[in-house]
Design a protein around this nucleic acid. Structure first.
Lengths: 146, 146
DNA sequence: TATTGTTATACTCTATAACTATA
DNA sequence: TATAGTTATAGAGTATAACAATA
């Protein structure tokens, strides 16, 4: 047992990493209040930017949302001119979704803006600490892919 | 420039950590699909559990939501019997919000359930890798507190 | 008949504005 | 008059169910 007002045993390895992850994620999310795009919208543009064109179903699976939800998000991004829908040549039920040049530009700008706060925070750490976080990021991706 | 379908320079230190953090946070969040409580509701119970009683405004500030939003969340948790509202003795405009025994129990149970997936994932890593993540969690908390 | 995408509709969470009670 | 909390109402995002088009 610890002090009177901290009765929870939040000291396990997993709890510590879970709480740290949620806290940093929340902090990063609050930092992007400057731009108007939602997390979900940006995640779609980022996925298209990194992995190339997707069908609607592929995007929905990747982002773990339903097809109607993804459809709404894609509609919004299409209206904004950030992506295009093109019927698939070989299977005309499918729709290929791809970034426009403007979409690519908005990804680059959003990444730049979102990362600037984190870059400043990392700059205050030692080279050893930054290297540790770099390795940790790889492990976190590995764990998340499980 | 890199390969044709990966035009973004998402390879900076900050981008890598940001993406890994969001990805792991999303994975952890999806893993708690078994319980009915939302992230926001659980965060309130966890804050009360760790830091003791709060007023409504303090909870809203801590969770970075508006007072009406927090009010709704607190209403829901009060109906479920997880917390109590008590008018403040010295300033009767304020309301002190505190966990019930049932609230404390549900925090402990939820933490246990949410962490079990992560514990299994961590068990597949080497002791060195787990130690690295332990240190990284401390650094992430430090960065988030900035 | 199965699959892909879309539309219709409802629910949850959050926000702003307006209101009540107390300082 | 200012502050803490609450209520009223609206907007964003997500879900399930139903539908259309194609394989």
């Amino acid at each position: 047992m610890s002090s009177p007002h901290t009765p929870a045993d939040t000291t396990t390895e997993a709890s510590s990493l879970r709480m740290a992850t949620f806290r940093l994620a929340r902090r990063l999310r609050s930092q992007r209040a400057v731009d108007t795009m939602s997390d979900g919208q940006f995640a779609v543009l980022a996925a298209l930017n990194v992995h190339g064109a997707h069908t609607l179903g592929e995007l929905a699976d990747r982002e773990r949302v339903t097809a109607p939800s993804m459809n709404r998000t894609v509609n919004c991004l299409e209206e904004s001119g950030y992506l295009t829908r093109t019927p698939d040549e070989t299977d005309r039920r499918k729709v290929n979704i791809a970034l426009t040049d403007e979409g690519r530009a908005v990804v680059a700008e959003t990444v730049r803006r979102r990362d600037s706060w984190l870059e400043q925070a990392l700059a205050e750490l030692s080279p050893q600490q930054r290297d540790l976080l770099r390795q940790a990021a790889d492990l976190m991706r590995e764990v998340a892919a499980r």
